[in-house]
Design a protein around this nucleic acid. Sequence first.
DNA 1: CCTCTTGCTGAACGGTTGTATGGTAAGGCT
DNA 2: AGCCTTACCATACAACCGTTCAGCAAGAGG
Lengths: 181, 181
Amino acid sequence: MAEPRFRRYAPEVRAGMLVEAGMACLARGGIGAFTVDNICAEAGASRGLIAHHFGGKDGLLVAVHAAAYAPVLEGWEGVGLPGLVDRLFAPAQFTEPGPRVWLALWGEIAVNPVLKAEHERHYTAYRTKVAAVVGDDVLAGAVIALADGLWLEQCLAPDVMSPDRAKAACRMLLRPILGDV
Amino acid sequence: MAEPRFRRYAPEVRAGMLVEAGMACLARGGIGAFTVDNICAEAGASRGLIAHHFGGKDGLLVAVHAAAYAPVLEGWEGVGLPGLVDRLFAPAQFTEPGPRVWLALWGEIAVNPVLKAEHERHYTAYRTKVAAVVGDDVLAGAVIALADGLWLEQCLAPDVMSPDRAKAACRMLLRPILGDV
DNA sequence: CCTCTTGCTGAACGGTTGTATGGTAAGGCT
DNA sequence: AGCCTTACCATACAACCGTTCAGCAAGAGG
């Protein structure tokens, strides 16, 4: 047989493939589509692999959460007040499937203790980065809340809220306090 | 037997009991806990009742969504700019289990077509009410986004964001545009 | 070409899911 | 008190869930 039945990958490569497949399922069908069957079919692997690499489905979910947070935390070097809004709504996190994945994750974070602890850790780091730009911690919380809420509206009613309108709305509220951002 | 094995209720009464039980399950364990078994146990009824009254689990979910929206849409008579923030963060919608239920619902709305259509209908009505107060539709979208984002933070990191801090953050951003609200 | 490590498969398992359905009894009405 | 409507129960069912595990085979090293 010239064609091998399956390929072997380095563990971290295969783990990455499973994480990506998990995000795709999450974006397509929410947490209800985040099943071992779906994910392994999406990744083109057999059902045992998730347990093998992540110990179980919950382990993969934590890894997916971390992967979803990565683009949110990256690329803050050199960002000042001008450029803040562009950074908040950077394509990497504001275009699909990013927001869809977050929508599904939020519903689980509130309910899954492990995920919740992991989230608070990342969120604090995120908030620190934003606070460094706007100069105030409470204001940073408000800015993040505004951005998240605009993500939300875009997901739930895309006809009403586009990325451009979201940026405009964000600037409308922030300009009186922060100037041109 | 003096004690009857079960009680009979008027259909709309029993439907209300099931909706309430569904919201409790949603708040406690997210969409993963929204199962026929859980809900009927919570309501003290047998497993067949949901199909009997709502045609199926999806029917109940739509009813729960409508019930969750009710307190958001009520009580806007006579609300002007002063009082807007108090109305946005009224206890009926900002204290548990309200936000927890919404967190779970948001993840499904994006994915369930029936729920999505229903949501857009209610959301438009909500936005209209807010726009009537703030006088501008785009601004209304931004205000709702801000309020939703603050709900979110309070659910995900309650230690960091309390109802009072949420109100303060909201006023901080709105005062320069709307005055004292 | 052989060997050895190990990434991976795939079937089997017990438990849970939502729905369908035939039978039961609650409680209003006469 | 008896009847009759119908709200309700409780089981059965097939589909699907996540985990386990014994063994296969891919492919690097020799």
